[in-house]
């Protein structure tokens, strides 16, 4: 691709280049991570002791700062019968190398819980997904109709939105203690936190989307004989359905953010519990594996919904989902190879 193409405003690169860029988008951070992990002279601020020598407090496998290591060895050299400690440069324990995380992704599912009452990873994930699902469904059942109402009818917006704007600024976790007091310690308060975190934003976001509706279409519908309720159901709602759907996709992402705080309310559970537990055992490869899993679930859900959206809304032309573009490209290349 010529250099000028990179900085041409609003110009999409050709499909093949797009695909490569999408891969690079994931590959570059991983490459950076691998670079830091596997090239010994990049970063590696610590030394892992192999042979403690005559340094009294060193043990094999211990991680010490490079400065401390050098200092101790310098002290040892000064004494008779000295044997200096040896070791190799290492990264802190919270930065496991990619292969360890990759392995953990595999083994995390196969590893038995350490303690009784701990959960398998897939159980944690299932619980988290269930919490998100119910939180989001309940929030949407209330928030979407209310948002549409506010967007379509200004008096409702005047009545509802100021209060919602006020509550919106209260952080959802602040309701944690209250939720536990009212709803107990298990799933209910967690779902409630997600509802609180999502609902208020949802009403405002949906209302704004509905308000942006093309008034020309409403007027056209009026000259065709559509009346109040018909206008709402046959013009306003279908007219912003695509945008509402995309809003919901974004809001679902926010719900995941609230999941992490929701799951420490009452009895800690789900993927957050798994992450905290593994961090306690200093199994940071498992921690990364779990975080990456959340990312993968989010990405797959979102792209799946985008793909589905293209099916539900055949009239929309903008922004094909990445998954669809990818499949289309594979199909095309498969076709040209055959």
């Amino acid at each position: 691709m010529p250099r000028s193409r990179w900085f041409a405003i609003g110009k999409e690169p050709p499909p093949r280049v797009r695909l490569v860029l999408t891969f690079l988008s994931f590959l570059l951070p991983v490459a950076l991570w691998a670079l830091i992990s596997y090239v010994p002279w990049i970063w590696h601020p610590l030394i892992r002791v192999n042979d403690p020598g005559t340094v009294a407090w060193f043990t094999p496998g211990l991680l010490v700062e490079r400065a401390v290591f050098a200092e101790e060895n310098a002290k040892v050299v000064a004494t008779p019968d000295a044997r200096v400690a040896t070791g190799e440069r290492a990264n802190p324990v919270f930065l496991p190398p990619p292969h360890a995380v990759a392995r953990a992704l595999w083994t995390a599912f196969a590893t038995k819980p350490v303690l009784k009452g701990d959960t398998w990873l897939h159980e944690s994930l299932a619980l988290s997904i269930r919490t998100i699902f119910w939180g989001f469904v309940i929030s949407s059942l209330l928030g979407v109709p209310l948002g549409i109402l506010c967007g379509a009818y200004p008096p409702f917006a005047r009545l509802v939105e100021p209060a919602i704007d006020f509550v919106r600024y209260m952080p959802a976790p602040a309701f944690g203690a209250l939720a536990v007091a009212v709803l107990g310690i298990f799933s209910a308060p967690k779902i409630a936190i997600i509802v609180v975190g999502t609902f208020f934003q949802q009403v405002l976001v949906i209302a704004n989307t509905v308000r942006r509706h093309d008034t020309a279409l409403i007027e056209a519908a009026q000259t065709l004989g559509a009346r109040r309720r018909q206008l709402l159901l046959h013009v306003i709602v279908p007219g912003c359905l695509v945008e509402l759907y995309n809003d919901q996709r974004i809001l679902l992402g926010w719900a995941w953010t609230y999941l992490i705080v929701a799951e420490v309310v009452g009895v800690s559970s789900g993927i957050t519990f798994f992450i905290n537990q593994q961090a306690k055992y200093r199994n940071f490869d498992n921690v990364y594996a779990a975080i990456i899993l959340i990312g993968i679930i989010g990405l797959v859900t979102d792209q799946g919904l985008a793909f589905l959206g293209r099916r539900i809304f055949p009239w929309q032309t903008r922004q094909p989902s990445r998954l669809r573009a990818f499949l289309a490209l594979l199909g095309r290349q498969g076709g040209s190879n055959a």
């Binding site: 020309a216 279409l217 007027e219 056209a220 519908a221 000259t223 065709l224 004989g225 559509a226 009346r227 018909q230 046959h234 013009v235 279908p238 007219g239 359905l241 695509v242 809304f313 009239w315 929309q316």
Partner: peptide, 29 residues
């Protein structure tokens, strides 16, 4: 009112309806 039909400069077809359903709109309403 539908007895004063209007054609706008900006087309104002309903993008989510097929051509036939656009024409059916007033009748259905």
């Amino acid at each position: 009112s539908p007895d004063r039909g209007m054609v706008f400069q900006g087309y104002t077809l309903f993008p989510w309806l097929t051509v036939k359903r656009n024409v059916m709109f007033g009748l259905r309403m």
